[in-house]
Every structure is written in C-alpha cells, then in structure tokens.
Design a protein around this nucleic acid. Structure first.
Lengths: 213, 213
DNA sequence: GAACTAATGTACCGAGTGGTACATTGCCCG
DNA sequence: CGGGCAATGTACCACTCGGTACATTAGTTC
C-alpha cells in the first residue's frame, strides 16, 4: 500500500525512459538514422533532457550499447547442463542460444550497427570484455569434459564453438530482410522455428562428435 | 597502338568511377553515414555529376547494391564438383564459399547495411531474386545425389545448407570489430584462416552425413 | 568551322539536426 | 513555509547535407 506517488520530476525514471526509447530507436534506424529529436518526442521528453542526462548523442548511444550488452549476458540463463553428457549439454546450449537470439533481435541489430561503424563506440566500453569472456566459461567446461571422455574433438576451443552457434543465429535475425526478399523465406516464421533450432543443434553435435584425425 | 586518347569528357568512365567510389564509401560508412559530397570529392568529380548520372543519393545507392549483388554471384566460380562424391563436393562448396566471403567483405558490409535499413532498397531490385535463386542450383543437385545414394540426410534443402555456410562466413566478416574487441581474436587473421575454413567444412560434412532419424 | 548537345563547373538554397543559453518550476530540507 | 537546487521547458544557433538553377565547355556532326 505504499505506492510511491507519481511524481512529476523523477530523475531515475526520466533517464530510464529515455534510455529505453533510445535503444528501440537506435536498433530500428541505426546511429545516424536516429535523430535526437525523434528520441525526445517518442519518450515524451524534451531534447534538453537527453543532454541533461547523457551529455551527447554519442554518449547516449554508448549507454544504450552498454546496457544492451550487459542485459543480454545476464538474460543468458546458463542452462543447467552440468549433469548431462557433454554432447547432450552442447546440444542444449545450441538450442538455448538459438531461442535467446530470436528473442533479442534488438540487441542483434545494435551489434550489427556497431560493426558498421567499425566498433568505434564499443571500444570505449572496456568493462564489457570481462563480461563477455566469462560467458565462454560454460562452453569451456563442457568441451573439457567431452575431451576427457573422448566424445568431443580436441581441435576446437570454446570461442570456436561459440562462433559457430552465434553465427547461425545472428545471421537469421540480422539478415532477415534480404533473405526474405531474395529467397522468399522468412527465417523467423514460428512454424519453422523448431526446424531451424534443430538444424544448428544437429550440426554442432555432429561436428563436435566427429573425429579430428 | 590504337590507344583511345584520354578524353576529358567520358560519360561511361565518369559514371563507372562514381559508382566504384560510391561502393567503397557506402560499404565503409553506411548509407546515412556517407555524404554525396564525400563521394564526389573522392571520385574527383563534382556533386553535380552524381545527380546527372544517378538522379539521387538513393538511386546511386541502388545502383551500388545491384552491381555488388550481380558481381558477387558472377565471381562465385561454381567449383567443378560434379565428378566428386556428394559429401566431398559439399565440403568443397563450403571451403570455396568461405574464401569467397573473406575476399568480398565490401559486399558483406553492403548486405549488413541494407538489413539495417530493413531491406528498403533491395526491394526495388526485383531482377536480383532470379540471380540469387539460381545460385542454389548447384547445392540442390548435390543434395539430391547425396540423398539418392544415402550419404546425405533427407530433412534439409539447398537453402538450409546455404544458410548454414553463409551464416558462418558472414558472421566472421560482418562482426569482425566487436569480436576482436570483446574476445581479442581477429577472425580474419591469415594464420587462422585454414583452421576456420576447415571448421565450417567439417561441420557441414558431419552435419549432412549424420542421420535424420 | 559553325552549330548543337552532351557533359561538366559554380554557386546557392532550404530543411533537418546536434547542441546550447537562458528562463522556469517542482521538490526537498531546514 | 520559504529558500535553494535539481529537473524541466523554450527558443534559438551554427552547420551539414541533399538537391538544384544556371552558366560553360568539350565533342560531334554536317
């Protein structure tokens, strides 16, 4: 019953709302394609507020990028796979990663945008490196177990596997539009989702369980 | 000895030079990130010429996109694999596709840019659909042969395979910058090229030769 | 070589955009 | 309750950028 009364001036809320709208806007239209005025209007704030809280368009974009990256890694619920066999676990990881990507297309678009700009912004987000490298820990342990019991090939590391899986998921989301136009197939069609999830899972398992001699 | 004398006014050459510079510029900085003045200057032409030959920035970009797409498919030297076993042939296709992507990063960036813009431009390039669908013919024949002799799983089609391979290659090129920063690994390092080429080749073969029952 | 047009150069406009100066008002604290 | 500052509103600037009007020159044609 202690609902905090709706205040007209709420720094934290204002800042957060701007950040949310900015995330959507940048993801939708790119950095240069998004106007500060647009963001202000869509957030029902004035442009003045954006500069008050973020200082510049560039810094706002930086805040968006950082929050998106942190959010994605946190949301990445490490599936409980420590009990499973390495290969079963890797299959599971592939499946979870697939769903995760499809549910966070906004983040994927931000990554694409950042790469278009040669990573000029992410460079300033040093702390993200740690966050990201840690994300490889789970894969690393699974591969190690698999190598130990002879079920997983020995010539690939955690990042290799991560790349294989992410590439597949990323591609479908990021290139949805050109694919749909050129091949008349919507990769995000819910009807086909099981098929595509199964594809990467099958590929990863088959690949990793095939010998490297 | 009949060198055509260097003319000061050469419509075809001027147009072609603008198109080349524009391709590089758009690929490097995106659509909104590239100014018409920049292109003009770097092509040693005047802005006036761009409008004379292309009509608008949008139409220039469209011309760039079309030329890039056509060029990439033509350069796609279909490897001579009709004599090989289906699986060997598919391995070869994966390897060739990998190299092809790495050598045409400009094109890949244009695709990424186009998807950032929701494919709003490629929509106007109807003829490209035909070109692209034809590119699947080779894969289709290989899969058919493989299914016939029982070496290839039956639950995937040519586009599925194309996606698997392209996704992997595209990802490494398109996301080079964020990957390099976050994981301190350059996916385009020549020293690792054989490893990464082998990875997708192994994965495709292992995947397609694994059963689907 | 005169005439005609394709091809090019120059100078400018108007809208949009990132950013800011200055005024104002709600909220908390004593 | 009233002062003081955090938070917000308004109006504006400087500049970029896509696009164009108009003048000019190189090539071609007869």
């Amino acid at each position: 019953m202690n609902e905090p009364r709706e205040r007209l001036r709420d720094a934290k809320r204002t800042r957060a709302e701007i950040l949310d709208v900015a995330t959507t806007a940048f993801a939708a239209s790119g950095y240069t394609g998004t106007g500060v005025d647009d963001i202000a209007e869509r957030a029902h704030k004035t442009k003045r507020m954006i500069y008050y809280y973020f200082g510049s368009k560039e810094k706002l974009y930086l805040a968006v990028l950082e929050k998106a990256y942190r959010g994605i890694r946190e949301a990445e619920q490490a599936p409980d796979v420590e009990e499973m066999s390495p290969l079963d676990a890797l299959r599971r990881v592939a499946e979870v990663t697939y769903d995760h990507h499809l549910e966070h297309s906004e983040f994927i678009r931000l990554v694409a945008i950042e790469n278009i700009h040669h990573g000029s912004s992410i460079r300033h987000l040093e702390p993200l490196r740690e966050v990201n490298r840690n994300a490889l820990g789970l894969l690393d342990r699974l591969l190690e177990r698999g190598r130990a019991d002879g079920t997983v090939r020995t010539d690939v590391d955690a990042l290799d596997v991560h790349m294989m899986i992410s590439a597949y998921c990323f591609f479908q989301v990021a290139n949805r539009y050109t694919i749909r136009f050129l091949f008349e197939r919507d990769m995000l069609d819910p009807e086909r989702r099981d098929h595509y999830r199964g594809m990467i899972a099958d590929a990863v398992v088959a690949w990793l369980s095939s010998g490297d001699d």
